[in-house]
Amino acid sequence: MRMEELKSGAALVIKPLERRIDAASATGFKNTLGERIQKGEKFIILDLSEVDFIDSTGLGAIVSVLKSLGDGGELIICNPRETVMSLFRLTRMNRVFQILPSVEEAVASISGT
């Protein structure tokens, strides 16, 4: 999966450039982020502004990344579209993830931790 990566303070901002995080792409997504975590990243901001479809396998991959970060790490979702947000609500994952409207707010949130 094509992704843009940007280091901002302690946070790694990841922006998937594909429109779908689904059963076909979830493994690649999870492996890429897993490699960053292996290299020591603890705070990840996932910018979903380009993503217009996530299925349960894609959501499971995002959950897996959160679990891989451990208790000391954080995964913040930002810029989700209304449609993608409806999946987080449907599965109650909006109560699991911190979901913010912009990368700037996500970076500020991590800087304050």
């Binding site: 299925d55 349960s56 396998t57 959501l59 499971g60 991959a61 959950v63 897996s64 959160l66 679990k67 208790d71 999946l87 449907l90 599965t91 109650r92 994952m93 109560r95 699991v96």
Partner: peptide
Amino acid sequence: CLDYDPRDRKTLPERGMGLTIMEEI
């Protein structure tokens, strides 16, 4: 149904959500 504690990462589901999603929709 999705049975997990949102505050406990260990309980979060990584799979098995498809049927619940279909039933909800």
